[in-house]
Design a protein around this nucleic acid. Sequence first.
DNA 1: AGGTATTCACATGAAACTATTCTCTGAGTTAGG
DNA 2: TAACTCAGAGAATAGTTTCATGTGAATACCTGT
Length: 400
Amino acid sequence: MLKIGTFFENFLKKDSIFTEKSILLSAYMPHEIMYREEQIKEAANILAPALRLERPSNLFIYGKTGTGKTLSIKHIMNSMNSIAETNTISMKMIYLNCKLKRVADTEYRLLSQLCKEFGREVPTTGLPTDEVYSIFYKLLDETKQVIVLILDEIDHLTKKIGDEILYNLTRINAELKNAQICIVGISNNLVFSENLDPRVKSSLSEEEIIFPPYNALQIQDILRNRTTKAFKENIVQTGVIEKCSAYAAREHGDIRRAIDLLRVSGEVAERSGSSIVTITHLDEAERKVESDKTISAAINQPKQFQTVLYAILLISPQKNHFFTGEIYEVYKKICTKNNFNVLTQRRISDILAELDMLGIINAKIISKGRYGRTREISLSLEESITIKLREVLEKSLRVS
DNA sequence: AGGTATTCACATGAAACTATTCTCTGAGTTAGG
DNA sequence: TAACTCAGAGAATAGTTTCATGTGAATACCTGT
């Protein structure tokens, strides 16, 4: 039997192929941002008046995931905030991610986060929203200042609770005597503003910047740059970076995925005791990233989601596509057998739509003429993932 | 044959309900002066 | 009398249910030839 102590000692002795793994984590902030000079300059130009305590134009930033939007704006924010601090300018930029669950994904929570930024804790519940509004107004208007409010993933916010807050926020300036507020919205949905209240739309997008996706060559360049910093020399075999960026370019130029993939490749290589990262490791990493993603997506869903998904997994070996009604029958059986309470078909319909959104299943609404209209559903996962997922769900739901 | 009407099996929407978590308020209680 | 406790009212939120309405095309049913 392996002594666990020896294992750790060996682990320590074996030197890592990484020099600085944190460089490949998504939280890493590089000092320079490659291929985004233009966008950064443009954004900086628009926002710079804030440093002279003039209200900048509201700004809207579009671009798909992993095109450097968040990174660039944070970069600008950091430098502007530090300049404001050293020169004692009462300007402040605040970054909020509207997608984060239980942080800023509702009107109330958004406002309470803002209050918190100004050093005033607001209870998580129990207060009327109006109250939080007036607290925020008061805090804001206490001093003469310019606030730049960055709302990342703003499309999630409006999808969930509508555009009323945005309207209120854009209108807030008229009621403030001392302070001024400027809104920077970031969205990865390119047609986001289409279904926005026209008043909000016009005032929010006084200026717009579009972040185009990186092309394969740019991704390669960025990956090389990171590789030299993150790995020891000559660790990453030639061809790995090229293939990695090809993967990412295929996925609409998502640099985050490319970097993730590179890091996991390194981890895979390290775990298998290899001293170099090869293409085989990369391939394995791709599978791993993919399956980790779906499994963690599934496991983080509520019980009922998992039950529905489990029902789908039970049907899928028999047919390659099936309908809402069939799933509902199987689902009901599972529930009664295990003493879960059975939800209505209406709800299951919504759950199926969400599973589709998550990319776990593939649902298409078809009409079978005389025989009704329904979703035609198929599982969009590889077999190996399916098996793993089934095990995970069985454990989590305690069924068999 | 060709055209129209039906009809199925859900989809989609809106509103209302439920349970949980949390605050605020004011009445009642307690302990010390 | 000040401090404390505790129940009740009110909010926010996630997850549902209830009720109502919408929908695409395969079939049933006509119609006139």
